[in-house]
Every structure is written in C-alpha cells, then in structure tokens.
C-alpha cells in the first residue's frame, strides 16, 4: 500500500521541520512541505495529498487563495487551516464560506492537530 501523503504549506521553517520530526515515525505517511503558496499549489496538483495543512498568511499568496484554487481540483482532500490571525470575520469566511475540515489558531496544539491529521488520513484516499 503506497504511503498516504500529507502536505504542509507554511512559510515558518520551524513548523515544517518539527512536523518532519513527528512524522518521521509514521512509516505509512509521506510528509511533503512547501514554504510558499505557489510552491504548495504545484506540489498539491502533482502529488494530490489526502490532507493539506496550510497557513493563511504566506509571502506570495494567501491561504485563502490557495483554498479557492485547490478545493475544486482536489475534492477528496481534507483541508486543515492554521493561522496567527486573530480575526473572527476571516475565520467564519473560511470555515463556513469556503469550508475546511479544521481551523486552528496559532499557537496550535500538536496532539490535537496530529489526531485530526491521522483521522483524516484514515478516512481519506490519495487521489
């Protein structure tokens, strides 16, 4: 069985590295990381990961823009958002407008997010 793919799009180097350390022990999951929005979209289009965890604020394009572009392309993919923005309007627009499977405010709780990612990978199939 091919490993399930998880993509993290986040410009914070630490976050990508730390998730790398966590996922190192999960042999059935392949972790992909992108530090810019456009790079993330390219990887997502190519690898079609089952779960995408993304930051909202990116140097090039916003997470919101990424969601708008990827969601139609990847209907089977679960989208999880993490952000440092303390903004209720943005949150409701993304959670209820665009629709995501999880919305986490920074600083996030690793165990909570991991459980969600694992739950999503169980139920999802890479396309």
């Amino acid at each position: 069985m091919p490993p399930k793919k998880v993509l993290i799009i986040e410009d914070e180097k630490d976050v990508n590295e730390l998730f790398g350390k966590v996922f190192a022990d999960y042999k059935d999951i392949q972790l992909l990381t992108a530090s810019k929005g456009e790079e993330g979209i390219q990887i997502a289009e190519k690898e079609k990961p089952g779960v995408i965890l993304l930051d909202l604020r990116m140097p090039d394009i916003t997470g919101e823009e990424i969601l708008r572009r990827l969601k139609p392309l990847l209907p089977g993919t679960k989208f999880l958002v993490m952000t440092g923005w303390e903004d209720g309007e943005t949150k409701s627009r993304i959670e209820f407008g665009i629709g995501v499977d999880g919305y986490y405010s920074k600083p996030i709780n690793l165990e909570e997010v991991m459980n969600k990612i694992l739950e999503c990978t169980e139920g999802s199939h890479d396309e």
Binding site: V15, L18, F19, D25, R57, M82, G84, S105, P107, I108
Partner: peptide
Amino acid sequence: SAGISHEVKNPLNSIKLAVETLMFNKKRGI
C-alpha cells in the same frame, strides 16, 4: 498590529510545537 500579532504568534507557535514534539515523540517511545 495585524502583522505584529502574526509576528508574535509565529514564534510562540514554534516554541509550543518544539516542546510538544518532544513530549509527543517521548510518549510514543521514539
């Protein structure tokens, strides 16, 4: 302020994740 809150939340996030990664991996016996 929006940018600044982002600027503060990100390091906090990294600190928390660094600690939690240690705890998470330790719990799993890694």
